[in-house]
Simulated assay, not measured.
Amino acid sequence: MKKEELEELLRDCPVLYHMAELGSWPSIQRHGLLSTSALLDLFAVSGSRRTAIEARRRPENVAVEHPKLGRAVIRDQKPMDDAGLLRCLQDGLTPEDWYKLLNDRVFMWLTRDRLHRLLTARPYRTLEHDVLELDAAPLVAAHWAQITLSPINSGATKPFPRDRGKDTFLSIADYPYAHWRGKRKAGERAVELAVTGGIPDVGPFVRRVIRMRGEEIVTVLYSR
């Protein structure tokens, strides 16, 4: 991606959206917006329990606890399953490989429309969630080296499993923006922005945190 292409992407998508578990904002304020793997490191989860969380599909939310840190909830992976991954994975990747790739990253949508699609998906539409709205440009500047972009929803295989492989997550420099610019409207030229390891210094990038049910804003938890 060229400099002017990134500038266009950030003009089209100035706000990033992260859908977090209900009640997770206080923990995010304390520890940052961490990937599943980084959270497991922080909470000292190891052995077979860690493998079950990090390298297997999570059909339901999983809670982890620490005597000093308290409790955190790791989200389920209901929109994805092994059968779908086996149909679409390329480059010799296994479902276990894919779960590990996902769990090493924190994901954000580049448009409100994409956020709403997830919020209104069947497993989540009746539930409340803490949604973070983040300023895209300063976050990209601060975490450039850890950021990857994806042209698909990498955490879903339903209703149709789109092909994915080692080149699904590409650095900003390597992302083929011009290719997708010729095929998609503004806002859809990259679908996900992910930060490897997470964003421990997330606070300065957060413009608002809202509690949502479907497309409804239930309450505002934080506003800068």
Rank of each mutant, 00 (worst) to 15 (best):
E4G: 00
E215R: 15
R57G: 09
R49Q: 15
K185D: 14
N153E: 11
P161R: 09
A52C: 07
H18D: 05
S35N: 08
T148F: 05
A136C: 08
I199C: 09
L149R: 01
Y177T: 04
L42F: 09
A194H: 04
E4Y: 06
L127N: 12
V206Q: 08
M108I: 03
R75S: 11
Y175N: 04
G203R: 15
L34S: 03
V64A: 03
A190H: 04
E54M: 11
I172H: 01
P138C: 11
L22S: 15
G182V: 03
V131H: 01
T126E: 15
V220W: 12
R75L: 01
L22M: 14
E192G: 05
I53C: 03
H66W: 06
P26M: 11
R184T: 10
R71Q: 15
I199G: 00
R56D: 12
I28L: 05
F205K: 07
R213D: 04
C88V: 03
A156F: 01
F107G: 00
P14L: 06
V218H: 09
H179I: 07
I199K: 00
L193I: 10
Q90A: 12
H143D: 07
V15W: 09
L101D: 10
S24P: 02
I147W: 05
E21F: 07
S150E: 00
Q146M: 11
D82I: 03
P176L: 09
S150Y: 04
Y124Q: 05
P159Q: 08
I53V: 11
R105H: 14
H116A: 10
P151Y: 00
L221I: 12
W109T: 03
V195K: 05
G84T: 02
R112H: 13
E188H: 13
E188T: 03
I152R: 07
L40T: 00
A83K: 10
Y17D: 07
E133M: 14
L193M: 12
S154D: 08
G92Y: 01
I28R: 02
K185W: 10
S48V: 11
V45S: 07
L101N: 09
G92E: 02
G197L: 06
L10P: 01
R184V: 04
Y124F: 14
V131K: 02
L118K: 10
E133Y: 15
D76C: 08
L89E: 06
K185T: 13
G70L: 07
E7V: 13
R49A: 15
L170I: 09
E192Q: 06
A63N: 02
R184Q: 12
T51G: 12
P200L: 10
R207Q: 14
D104V: 01
Y222F: 15
L110M: 15
E216W: 08
R122H: 14
S150H: 02
K158Y: 02
D81Y: 07
Y177A: 04
H31D: 13
E54A: 12
I172W: 01
L149G: 03
L89T: 04
E60S: 09
A142H: 14
V73Q: 13
L102N: 08
G47L: 05
N103Y: 08
F160E: 12
A190W: 00
G92F: 04
L139Y: 03
T94K: 04
K3D: 13
R71I: 14
M19Y: 03
A121R: 09
S37G: 10
Y99C: 01
L170D: 09
L149F: 09
F160A: 14
D104P: 00
W180H: 15
